[in-house]
Design a protein around this nucleic acid. Structure first.
Length: 882
DNA sequence: ACCGCCGGGTGCC
DNA sequence: ACCGCCGGGTGCC
């Protein structure tokens, strides 16, 4: 019987999995830039660190404190088929509806097969702890199965520090002994010290872990990219009218193997008649379902779309190409025979697919709205005109929702929005059709598992799954999970196993964790970069690019104003340094730095509230910060929904979210906390962006004045136009207001220009890009571009000059921006000009940029968190010359 | 289960 | 013997 008052609500399914709790999963934020001057490695890391703690300790008690562990037993083994090996992890699942015992706790192996039950008395204890969310309980089987009746299990308890006492009390009051201290078999105890009780220390520790994780994740992704794939090249079928480049043939061949191959990934071995997974050390009786599909993570511009089209045409059922009838009743079938050697024999392929729905024939392509037209264009352009490929654009209110119609297409194109809209409605046609293949274009869009569109994508019924993305990992490992889950890479599509086998070990710096991750992803990912080589030849050859730095001298008057602001900032920061509160006041420090950087561009950049921020009321200071955040990033992400911030509001702790998103967070909790810093927040204290911006903008233009940097740019542009008026330029700034300021002299000098920034709608962006890329007479020579606008993936190859108006903290962001024109299709050499104000914070930034690689390396050395902390502060001191 | 537990058979040494 | 001890039956929650 259940003698525990306050036992939580039973799940309506009758099962409560201990690692998943409804409330904890429902509100969350993953990755994302949130409030950060996100191009800044310093802030980025710090804000991630802040986010990390909140997240780790709360949303996912995953890396919470280890309270201790105890030995117990699993009984009833003989009734179940689940297999476990020595040292293997098991999950504990509450079974409140069990007719014999309401406290029942089921033990399941990695694949979810039941192994047995926790012995009654122990189950009563666990039920109490799990149902009240006092701790998460993880099981490891130390000796494996010795007989058919019972076996040992080591249970470890993880949770929030504040729950430790309650858990310990529960355990001891039922006369169980909680082992604290090193457990011997596993290194979980380390985590106890990792997340120290002091907020600051844990923040910094997580910070270092994140750098470590990021660095390594990037590294090995690169490495596996360079690897020589033992895959042949496969010719595209004859119906393609565009010849594939060698690396595209290679990708096509790899994709066909992924779809057809019956072999299991190499981390599976056959052992004693069972299938043994070398990553989880677990076995299953039935042959595991192989992932059919994968992640094509090639760099931008290497032709992922083209390769995917080739795949659709070449690999229909049984490894044979898709043949098409020009007319339904035409006897003459255009047979498009693969010219290359087929990787898998049809018989072999057929046997592997025997359980598949043979009627499935359509490929569903899901992409962001902005690239829909690109898919249509490319399908049109690359498929021979006499081939009648049935492509249906499933978009717009008039779309044909008939599932038979959809099933009969070769290709159905739709957007993530349409998909998630249908999913939340009733009887979604897209979820009814049995697809042959689903392709997620820009697949990193689904990295947030809580988003509707991610959930919608998981529920699609398909045989093969593909993810196309140029940026498989955007912020950290967490981003990868959703991709793994979509591919149904067993058993890691279940969060608990991902966390226990991959996420936590890697975050803790465990080498084998990293190797596991590598093995796991390598078997489903193909990634090449522009610098990768095929058979010793570069994938693509690009024109040269060169960078020159142009130093700008401030005028006397500008210098005076700058020095005034600098002195004020130095006073404030040196006070923080003296007090040792630099990191605590980070938002303020950044605000000061941003102001100085803005002065270097133009004195009017910050608007009228430039001085004496200290005297302003809190509300006004927040508005200033909000403006800074939106003005610098210009395409800021909301840490809740991970999309661009809509209806921005700022919390009292100076973090920016969409109003609806943060409002929901506040509503869903009794004591609402800021998702980024865990500070208390209230709906009434959210500060909105005042609508005065427009009027101020015009104010800015009415009393327009120039600045040294404006002059420097204009003279470069004028000189360029007089030398060669066919050369197009990108003028890039982090400050959208600076772009506004630049519009005046450009108009005055009669330059035709367009502007692209984060505030523009997708549709407008596409228009602007098209206009700029067009070679029609009278098309614009210049594009004003905000540094982060548009995200990756836009093609500005019409430009061969880039003017970087202000240095970014992170040179990688600058590179990414330059890559928009230095890419496939660029015919000219690309010249990049960076304007740097002499004797200013910008010069120091450039120095730090140069040291950055070095710094990153150091961060992984033996340095402890404390030292990293001081070096951050040192960096700020260097910037301010303190 | 090469256990623990139960309950019946049994009973000085 | 209203015990102890023995050995067979039995066995998750």
């Amino acid at each position: 019987m259940c003698a525990h008052p306050g036992v939580g609500p039973w799940g309506n399914t009758g099962l409560l999995v201990n690692c998943v709790s409804g409330t904890m999963q429902s509100r969350r934020w993953f990755g994302g830039a949130g409030f950060s001057f996100a191009d800044d490695p310093v802030t980025e890391t710090l804000s991630q660190a802040i986010r990390g703690t909140g997240e780790e300790l709360d949303r996912e008690p995953d890396t919470g404190v280890l309270f201790g562990s105890l030995r117990g037993s699993v009984v009833g083994l003989r009734y179940y088929t689940g297999v476990v090996n020595k040292g293997e992890m098991v999950s504990l699942v509450r079974q409140p509806q069990n007719p014999y015992d309401r406290n029942a706790v089921m033990v399941a192996n990695v694949y979810g097969s039941q192994v047995g039950h926790i012995k009654r008395e122990l189950a009563a204890l666990l039920a109490n702890i799990m149902d009240n969310n006092l701790a998460r309980v993880e099981g490891v089987v130390p000796f494996g199965v010795k007989n058919q009746f019972t076996m040992s299990v080591v249970l470890s308890f993880w949770g929030k520090e504040e729950n430790r006492d309650a858990v310990v009390r529960q355990i001891t009051s039922r006369s169980f002994k909680l082992q604290t201290g090193p457990t011997g078999t596993h290194t979980h105890a380390d985590t106890g010290t990792l997340i120290a009780s002091s907020w600051v220390i844990s923040c910094l520790t997580v910070c270092v872990c994140l750098i470590w994780e990021r660095f390594h994740v990037c590294r090995w992704f690169q490495r596996s990219a360079q690897e020589d794939y033992k895959i042949g090249e496969r010719e595209a079928v004859e119906v393609m009218c565009t010849p594939l480049l060698p690396h595209q043939k290679q990708a096509l061949s790899w994709m066909c193997v992924c779809e057809n191959n019956v072999a299991l990934p190499h981390f599976w071995e056959v052992k004693g008649g069972l299938f043994y997974n070398t990553l989880t050390h677990s076995s299953v009786r039935e042959r595991p379902q192989r992932v059919r599909g994968g992640i094509l993570a090639d760099d931008m511009g290497l032709g992922k779309t083209l390769t995917t089209i080739a795949l659709i045409l070449s690999n229909f059922h049984h490894g044979k190409p898709l043949y098409t009838h020009p007319h339904p009743f035409d006897e003459c079938i255009i047979w498009c025979v693969s010219q290359g050697k087929s990787v898998v024999s049809p018989v072999e392929a057929a046997s592997s697919q025997s359980t598949d729905d043979p009627a499935a024939r359509a490929t569903l392509i899901i992409c962001p709205l902005s690239v829909l037209s690109n898919w249509l264009d490319q399908l049109d352009q690359h498929v021979r005109a006499d081939v009648k490929l049935n492509v249906y654009l499933y978009y717009g209110s008039e779309r044909n929702r008939d599932t038979h119609f959809l099933s009969s297409q070769h290709v159905v194109l739709t957007t993530y929005n349409v998909l998630s809209a249908e999913y939340s409605g009733s009887a979604s046609p897209l979820h009814t059709v049995s697809w042959l293949r689903v392709v997620l274009d820009e697949g990193h869009i689904i990295r947030n598992p809580n988003a509707q569109q991610s959930k919608a994508v998981l529920k699609l019924n398909t045989q093969r799954r593909w993810i196309l993305t140029g940026t498989p990992i955007q912020n950290n490992l967490r981003d990868l999970w959703m991709l793994v889950a979509f591919l149904r890479l067993k058993p890691f599509d279940v969060r608990e196993w991902w966390n226990r086998v991959i996420q936590r070990p890697v975050t803790q710096g465990d080498k084998t964790g990293l190797q596991n991750l590598q093995a796991l992803v390598k078997c489903v990912t193909l990634r090449r970069t522009k610098t990768s080589r095929v058979c010793g030849r570069p994938l693509v050859s690009l024109p040269e690019r060169s960078v020159r730095i142009e130093e700008v001298e401030l005028t006397q008057k500008e210098r005076e104003e700058y020095e005034l602001a600098r002195t004020e900032g130095r006073t404030t920061i040196s006070r923080y340094v003296a007090e040792g509160t630099v990191l605590k006041n980070y938002a303020d420090v950044l605000a000061i730095l941003v102001r100085l950087r803005q002065f270097c561009c133009h004195p009017d950049l910050l608007g009228k509230t430039t001085t004496h921020t200290a005297d302003l009321l809190l509300r006004e200071r927040l508005i200033v910060k909000l403006r800074l955040v939106l003005g610098t990033g210009s395409d800021e992400e909301c840490a809740v929904c991970l999309n661009s911030v809509r209806l921005p509001v700022i919390t009292h702790c100076a973090h920016v979210y969409c109003r609806p998103c943060i409002a929901q967070v506040i509503r869903s909790e009794q004591v609402a906390r800021c998702p980024l810093c865990r500070g208390q927040i209230k709906a009434s204290e959210l500060v909105e962006f005042p609508l005065e911006e427009e009027e101020e903008g015009s104010n800015l233009l009415e009393n327009w004045r120039s600045s040294s940097k404006v002059e420097a740019l204009m003279s470069s542009l004028l000189r360029l136009r007089s030398e060669d008026d066919s050369i197009r330029s990108l003028v890039v700034s982090q400050f959208t207001r600076f772009l506004t300021i630049l519009e005046i002299p450009l108009r005055e000098e009669g330059f035709k220009f367009v502007r692209l920034d984060g505030t523009m709608s997708q549709k407008r962006r596409a228009q602007v890009i098209q206009e700029f890329q067009s070679d029609a007479p009278g098309s614009p020579l210049i594009m004003l571009l905000s540094l982060k606008a548009g995200g990756v993936g836009i093609n500005l190859s019409a430009a061969s000059r880039v003017f970087l108006m202000d240095p970014a903290w992170n040179p990688a962001v600058e590179d990414q921006c330059v890559d928009r024109c230095h890419r496939l299709g660029q015919k000219r050499d690309v010249v990049i000009t960076k304007f740097i104000v002499k004797g200013s914070v910008e010069e120091n930034m450039v120095k730090i940029q140069r040291q950055k690689q070095d710094l990153v390396e150091k961060a992984f050395g033996t340095k402890n968190p404390g030292e990293r902390n001081t070096s951050r502060v040192d960096e700020i001191r260097a910037l301010m010359e303190l």
